[in-house]
Simulated assay, not measured.
Amino acid sequence: MKNLTIIGLILLALSVLLFYLTANNFTINDLGMPHIMGIMGGIGVGLIIGGLVGYVSKGSAIKAEQKKKEYRQLQKDKEDLEKQAAEIARREAELRQAQNNNPQV
């Protein structure tokens, strides 16, 4: 969003600069239909670009969140497997200890 704001401000400054370079001695009484159409066109282009950038940003954020969830799930699964492995190792150690204490002849 910060980049979008910076780009918007740069485009706004550029449009103001171009307007002052092309309109000498402009007063509010000189505001005509071509100016209004230009303003409406600028707003329309800004909304289209903003919508596209917002759509892409939202998609990226959703993908990143999904990857985080998958990573957390993998960590949880890893912890569960480690607990199961520790439990199996403990049972095997107990079984070996029991076999060592009661040797069969």
Results as ranks from 00 to 15, higher is better:
40 M>K: 00
1 M>L: 13
68 K>G: 03
73 Q>R: 06
63 K>N: 12
105 V>Y: 03
71 Y>I: 05
49 I>T: 01
71 Y>D: 00
3 N>Y: 10
80 D>Y: 14
83 K>C: 06
92 E>R: 10
70 E>G: 02
50 G>C: 06
20 Y>K: 07
13 A>W: 02
90 R>H: 12
39 I>H: 10
40 M>T: 11
67 K>H: 08
85 A>W: 11
43 I>A: 02
99 Q>M: 12
44 G>R: 01
66 Q>G: 08
88 I>V: 13
84 Q>H: 06
59 G>L: 09
24 N>V: 10
9 L>F: 11
30 D>G: 07
56 V>D: 01
6 I>A: 04
53 V>C: 07
18 L>N: 03
97 Q>I: 03
66 Q>I: 02
98 A>H: 13
23 A>R: 12
13 A>N: 07
12 L>Y: 08
16 V>K: 05
13 A>L: 14
98 A>E: 15
46 G>P: 02
75 Q>G: 06
76 K>T: 12
53 V>G: 10
70 E>L: 13
69 K>I: 07
51 G>K: 07
75 Q>F: 10
78 K>F: 09
32 G>L: 02
25 N>D: 15
50 G>F: 06
5 T>I: 12
29 N>R: 14
75 Q>S: 10
4 L>A: 15
71 Y>A: 10
103 P>E: 01
84 Q>I: 11
6 I>M: 02
80 D>T: 12
59 G>Y: 05
72 R>F: 14
34 P>Y: 04
16 V>E: 04
82 E>N: 14
31 L>D: 04
58 K>P: 08
52 L>A: 00
64 A>D: 05
96 R>N: 03
61 A>W: 09
89 A>D: 14
1 M>P: 05
82 E>A: 14
51 G>Q: 03
77 D>N: 14
99 Q>C: 01
28 I>V: 15
97 Q>W: 01
76 K>H: 12
41 G>L: 01
95 L>C: 06
104 Q>R: 15
55 Y>V: 00
8 G>N: 05
43 I>N: 06
104 Q>H: 13
88 I>Y: 08
39 I>M: 15
52 L>G: 08
61 A>G: 08
25 N>W: 09
93 A>E: 08
15 S>T: 13
17 L>D: 05
3 N>Q: 13
24 N>S: 14
72 R>N: 13
66 Q>Y: 06
35 H>T: 04
69 K>D: 10
55 Y>R: 11
78 K>N: 13
51 G>C: 05
85 A>H: 14
95 L>H: 00
96 R>G: 00
104 Q>T: 15
5 T>D: 05
78 K>S: 10
28 I>Y: 13
100 N>Q: 14
101 N>Y: 04
23 A>H: 15
51 G>D: 03
23 A>W: 00
63 K>H: 08
104 Q>P: 04
76 K>Y: 12
26 F>L: 03
4 L>T: 12
44 G>E: 02
27 T>S: 15
15 S>E: 14
28 I>G: 05
97 Q>C: 09
34 P>I: 08
71 Y>V: 10
81 L>G: 04
48 I>K: 03
63 K>W: 00
60 S>P: 05
20 Y>I: 09
102 N>Q: 11
31 L>W: 13
22 T>K: 09
42 G>N: 02
39 I>P: 02
80 D>G: 02
73 Q>N: 09
62 I>A: 11
80 D>L: 15
